[in-house]
Amino acid sequence: MSNLDDTEFLEPATLAEALRFMADESTRAVPLAGGTDLMVQWEAGVRPPPSRVLNLKSLPELAELRAEGDTLIIGAGITHAALRRSPLVRKHAPALADAAATVGGAQIQALGTIGGSIGNASPAGDMAPSLLVANARAEVASIHGSRTIPLTQFLVGYRKLDLAADELIIRFHLDALPAEYCEGWRKLGPRAAQAISKVMGSYRGKQEGGKVASFAVALGSVAPTAIRLREVEQWVVGRKLNADTLREAEERASAEVKPIADIRSTAEYRQWVSGRLVRGFLEHLASAG
């Protein structure tokens, strides 16, 4: 048990106040939302106790969830429980709702937030692939204003984000699922529930006239960040899905990832199964279209 008794606890009432804390080095703090990652890391001694913590829990600005035209806007403070329950998310980003439903158990889903999951910048974060296939943009803010960056660029590397020391993640903007498109989410973990992923991923696609008209696919736990598989995406568009193209798509997808071995799986299996997941997504698309 780490001792956090001496950690200063900052309780901003508004986003503006929170950003002011972050602006000044003397008050800058570790932002804390659901605590499902940070509290564990502090407890386990993986991270030393911080000198200051910024409580994001009660900021109303982070709690919005709405559709605006073709865009779905999700506040960074929205929990996994809220994501899986929301009819809006279910309609406009079903793979995200499905992903949220596979994070931890009910208790973790009630605590953990989408902003925290992305902010933790782990390649095993279950939110990223569904956001990536929805072309999500992260909106971040500091007292100097806000900026919006495609998630592909926001996820810089292992535990690295394009986020300045004085910035906070505010919300995500997603392309709502267009009509006639399908989505899917698949997670492979060491057990059926409450698992950290070995490999997981999402796709969004469309078939037209027996051919793939559009295909976006993203996988996590196979590279330092969750990634879109651009090569296989481009290769498959315009093709008819049959045994040959499925096999080739599988091989191309497998070649496009660079997984490592860890306690949950081997690099070789991850490499192979990445291709298999992409094949599964294409089969799903073929059967849906």
Binding site: V40, A44, G105, P190, A192, A193, I263, R264
Partner: peptide
């Protein structure tokens, strides 16, 4: 032991 927490030493849940 490499699996030294409950997150890494995985036992069956109700869904398994």
């Amino acid at each position: 032991f490499d699996a030294n927490r409950m997150q890494t030493y995985v036992v069956p849940t109700s869904m398994d």
